[in-house]
Write a protein that binds this DNA or RNA. Structure first.
Lengths: 177, 177
DNA sequence: TTTACTGCAAATTCTTTGCAACAAC
DNA sequence: GTTGTTGCAAAGAATTTGCAGTAAA
């Protein structure tokens, strides 16, 4: 889906709710759809601060991301690091995520057999499914290989994930409960 | 699994890491295993504050919950309300969750066919699975029924979830991304 | 006695909000 | 002109942390 169509859809969405299409909203929409990575609010804010001439405040970034989420232009993903990541979804097929606990890499997967089973479960319980998140946490091929090597070489402990705030560590551990 | 066996396991866990079994830790462990509901750190803190004679500080509650999580005595679950909920897992079979967006009710489900498919996907990608979370968000039977009734009666908007902080609303919306 | 633990209050992190100035429509 | 928006800085919420005193082992 190209920027143009997206912009139009956003405009329509805003119009439907009697909201206004401002320069900031346009900027944020464009930047969000210009990347194919997952990004955080802070990340997007910094991109705009450094790349763009027009500056947008953090507050507006948060407010607009919320709006884009409501309109299902983007979706939020909690990778367990204390902050939410976003990805654009308009024009993309639904998928779920495999998250590497070491390097943070996110791979996407989709399996319609799983989704079918999921629907069956909901039907059985009379549960009206709105959406779902299915996260697989573990080590990507590269990191898994490295860890095996380290283990053999006698580096017993795993190095701490090269990531974010220690504060977020706990949240990451949402062990498949 | 009974309290006694659990206490023993905790003791062993602590001993293995040269940590000490304190009165506070014992109190927290017991209370966490005495409930069959999902609870937050704050909830547990308040339970202890009101029910128990020995008072435990919030900081210790957080610290001990983290410890119990590491030892896989309990697991954390993010229901998208800005705080983590915990449930004890020691001696319980793994399961996933269906979360009602209206009343907050949590139902558990388990489907080994899904887990098998999941493992297959990981094998294909060389992903070493450590754990997973599979959350189904929607409306439980009771709330779904109520909503249908409201809709017919001409109560077009959905009442706001009778829950927590508005701040958490955004996080809840992690639309199946 | 040594080493770890606790409570307190202050600090952090991400995110939201009140409000006055401002810009779409 | 209206009505919705922005930016700022202050407010929040959940959780963590430094430190001095306390208690297991």
């Amino acid at each position: 889906m190209k920027q143009d169509a997206i912009a139009k859809a956003f405009d329509a969405f805003l119009r439907k709710r009697s909201l206004k299409l401002t320069a900031q909203r346009r900027t944020i929409l464009e930047r969000a759809f210009a990347t194919h990575e997952h990004f955080s609010a802070e990340q997007l804010y910094r991109w705009l601060a450094s790349e763009s001439t027009a500056k947008v405040s953090r507050a507006t970034v948060y407010r607009t991301l919320a709006l884009l989420q409501e309109g299902e232009f983007i979706a939020a993903l909690d990778v367990g690091r204390g902050e939410l990541l976003y990805e654009h979804v308009l024009g993309h097929r639904h998928h779920d995520h495999m998250i590497c606990l070491d390097c943070g890499k996110i791979e996407e997967f989709h399996d319609s057999r799983i989704e079918a089973l999921q629907n069956g479960i909901c039907a059985d319980k009379g549960f009206e499914l709105v959406n779902h998140t299915h996260r697989l946490l573990g080590y990507c091929r590269a990191c898994a290989g490295q860890r095996r090597k380290d283990a053999k070489a006698g580096t017993p402990a795993s190095k701490p994930p090269a990531h974010k705030t220690p504060a977020a560590a706990g949240r990451a551990d949402q062990s498949g409960a």
